[in-house]
Design a protein around this nucleic acid. Structure first.
Length: 507
RNA sequence: GCGGCAAUAGCUCAGUUGGUAGAGCGUUGGCUUCCCAAGCCAAAGGUCGCGGGUUCGACCCCCGUUUGCCGCUCCA
C-alpha cells in the first residue's frame, strides 16, 4: 500500500510537471478538488472523448450523439428524483461524531410516540375485552389525547420547517424534543446543515423574478428530455441510443483522490432505448460491449472487473460497474444500468406530454426501457494516465520514465528531431513537420542531445520519434523510433504518414 | 464535516536551541555531439501557502486560515 501511495504521488507530480493536470486557481492557493487540464492533458482528454464517440456514435448506425445544455428546467430534477433525494438536512453528534439525517431523527421520535399510543390501545383492549371500541378510546382517553396532540403539534411544526427549509427550526425541534444520539446518548448536536448535492444558481438578473435553477448533476436527463426530439427528427427506431459527453456537477461532501472524485466532472453517457421486457438481454450485451471497448486499449484484462450491484437505485432493475485497478485500488470507472422506464415515465407525468414510441412491428405504443452506459471521463483519464506511467530500468542500467499511452490516445503522435542543429537538418525536419501536421499532432525539438530528446518524448507518451540525419539529406529517408520498444526503422519520408496512421490504429 | 499529518524554486528535498535561503534534476541561451538523459559555459527562477501574534529579529515558536494526504463519515 505504501508503495502504491508513493506511485500515486509520482503520477500526480508527473501530471503536473509535464502539463497534464494543474490544481485550479493555483496562484490563489487552489480550490479544493478542482483541477485544470493543461496543454498535454487537454489533448489526451480530447482523444479519449473522440475514441469513445467514434466507438459509440460512428460505429453504431442506431446511436446518435447530442450536446444538451447544463441548465435545465427545474422540474427536470423533480421528475428525476434528484430534488428529493439530494436535499437531506444533516446533523452531527459532537460526542459520537456520527452523522444523522435530521428529518429521520424526528421521524423516529414520532414513531416512538405512536408506539406509546399503540401500547395504551393494547392495554385498554385487554382490560375492556370485547367491549373495546378503538376509535372511541382514541378520541376520549386523556393520555392518548395528550400524546396525540403533541405528535400533531410536532408534525405540523416539522412539516412547516421542512417546507420553508428552516434549518435552525429543525435543530430547535430536535432540542425541544430532547432527542439523544443513539450511539453516545448525548444531546450535543451541531447545527443542522443542508447537504444538497446539487449546485444551484439563479436564472434571471432581477432577484424577484429570478428562479432557482441547478447545475445538472448528471447528463442523462438531457437525453431523456430530448427523447421525442431525437426519435422523431432522426427517424430512430427502437432499439436505438443517444450519446452525450458533457460536464456534470455534484457538491460532494468529500471530494478527493486527485481527479477521481471532483465536484465538477465530465461524463460520457449513452442511453439505449429498448422494448420493455428485452432490457435485461440488452443490459448483458452492453456490459460485454463496454468491457470490450476498455480492453481494446490494450491494458491488462486483470486491471478490470465487474461489480454487480445488489442494492439498486430507485430507478434501476439491474446495475453493474466496470471497476478499474487504480493506484488506490479497484474503483468504479463506468456504470451500466438498466434504468427501466422510470425516467421517461417520470418526465411524461411531470410534463404532461405523451412520451412513448409506436412500434410498427408490434403495432403498439409503449414507453421504452433504458440501458445506460455512463463513464467518468476524468476517471478514464486517470485510468489511462496512471496505467501508462512507468519507470523502466533499461538493459544498460539507466532508467527512463515513459508514458505507455495507447498510441491512439497519445497527445502528440510524433516528434521530428534533427540529429544535429546544423547542415540543413533543422530545415529538413521543419519540412517533415509541415507534411505531417495536417494529420497529426507533431512536436519539433532540436535542443540537447538526441537521447535526451527521446526521453522527453517518452515522458509525454509520444509514440514515434522521427529523426533527420545526414542520410536524410542524401536520400530522403528518416529513422523512426518507437516509444515502447525503442527500436528504429528507416523509412522514406513519403511513407511516414501511412506508417503513423497504421501505428496509432487500434488493432 | 470530524480527527491526525504536511506545505521551502517547475519537480524531489535540505535548512544547525530563532540571526536576511541551498542542492540535485528540470527550464532558457550558447558550445559540443551522426542515435537513447546525468558533456562544457552562462542565466533565469523563492516576500519559505496565506493572515495575524510573540520577539531587537521568525522558514523555524503560537493562533487562525487555505490547500493536499491518511482514517472515519458521505457517495441519490
Amino acid at each position: 500500500m505504501a508503495n502504491n501511495d508513493e506511485l500515486f504521488k509520482k503520477i500526480i507530480a508527473h501530471a503536473k510537471e509535464y502539463g497534464f493536470i494543474f490544481p485550479s486557481s493555483e496562484i490563489y492557493d487552489g480550490l479544493a478538488a478542482v483541477y485544470d487540464y493543461g496543454q498535454m492533458g487537454a489533448e489526451l482528454k480530447n482523444n479519449i472523448k473522440s475514441y469513445w464517440w467514434k466507438s459509440m456514435v460512428q460505429d453504431h448506425e442506431n446511436i446518435v450523439g447530442i450536446d444538451s445544455a447544463i441548465f435545465m428546467h427545474p422540474t427536470v430534477w423533480k421528475a428525476s428524483g434528484h430534488v428529493d433525494a439530494f436535499n437531506d438536512p444533516l446533523i452531527d453528534n459532537k460526542d459520537s461524531k456520527k452523522r444523522y439525517r435530521a428529518d429521520v431523527l424526528i421521524e423516529d421520535y414520532l414513531a416512538k410516540q405512536e408506539d406509546k399510543i399503540e401500547k395504551e390501545v393494547e392495554k385498554a383492549a385487554k382490560r375492556f375485552g370485547d367491549a373495546f371500541d378503538k376509535s372511541q378510546f382514541l378520541a376520549t382517553n386523556g393520555r392518548v389525547l395528550e400524546i396525540q396532540s403533541k405528535i400533531d403539534a410536532v408534525r405540523h411544526r416539522f412539516a412547516e420547517a421542512m417546507t420553508s427549509n428552516d434549518l435552525p427550526e429543525i435543530k430547535k425541534i430536535i432540542e425541544d424534543l430532547e432527542i439523544v444520539c443513539p450511539v453516545s446518548g448525548s444531546r450535543n448536536w451541531t447545527e443542522v446543515r443542508q447537504f444538497n448535492l446539487m449546485f444551484s444558481t439563479q436564472m434571471g438578473s432581477v432577484s424577484e423574478d429570478a428562479s432557482q435553477i441547478y447545475l445538472r448533476p448528471e447528463t442523462a436527463q438531457g437525453i431523456f428530455v430530448n427523447f421525442l426530439n431525437v426519435q422523431k427528427t432522426g427517424r430512430m427506431k427502437v432499439p436505438f441510443g443517444i450519446a452525450q459527453i458533457g460536464k456534470a456537477f455534484r457538491n460532494e461532501i468529500v471530494a478527493r483522490q486527485f481527479i477521481f472524485r471532483m465536484r465538477e466532472f465530465e461524463q460520457m453517457e449513452m442511453q439505449f432505448f429498448v422494448r420493455p421486457g428485452s432490457e435485461l438481454e440488452w443490459f448483458k450485451t452492453w456490459k460485454e460491449k463496454r468491457l470490450k471497448w476498455h480492453l481494446s486499449l490494450g491494458f491488462s484484462p486483470n486491471k478490470y472487473r465487474f461489480h454487480d450491484h445488489e442494492k439498486l437505485a430507485h430507478y434501476a432493475n439491474a446495475a453493474a460497474d466496470i471497476e478499474f485497478d487504480f493506484p488506490f485500488g479497484f474503483k468504479e470507472l463506468e456504470g451500466i444500468h438498466s434504468r427501466t422506464d422510470f425516467d421517461l415515465k417520470a418526465h411524461a407525468e411531470h410534463s404532461g406530454k405523451k412520451i412513448q414510441y409506436f412500434d410498427a412491428e408490434l403495432n403498439e405504443n409503449y414507453t421504452p426501457y433504458v440501458i445506460e452506459t455512463s463513464i467518468g471521463l476524468d476517471r478514464m483519464f486517470l485510468a489511462v494516465f496512471s496505467t501508462a506511467f512507468n519507470e523502466e530500468k533499461l538493459e544498460d542500467g539507466s532508467e527512463r520514465t515513459v508514458l505507455n499511452i495507447p498510441p491512439v490516445l497519445a497527445p502528440y503522435k510524433a516528434a521530428v528531431l534533427p540529429l544535429v542543429k546544423k547542415d540543413g537538418m533543422p530545415e529538413k525536419a521543419r519540412e517533415i513537420c509541415d507534411i505531417l501536421k495536417a494529420d497529426f499532432m507533431i512536436q519539433y525539438d532540436e535542443k540537447d542531445a538526441i537521447g535526451r530528446r527521446y526521453r522527453r518524448q517518452d515522458a509525454i507518451g509520444t509514440p514515434f520519434c522521427i529523426t533527420v540525419d545526414s542520410e536524410t539529406l542524401e536520400n530522403n529517408t528518416v529513422t523512426v523510433r518507437e516509444r515502447d520498444s525503442m527500436q528504429q526503422v528507416r523509412l522514406p519520408i513519403e511513407q511516414l504518414r501511412s506508417y503513423i496512421f497504421d501505428g496509432i490504429r487500434v488493432k
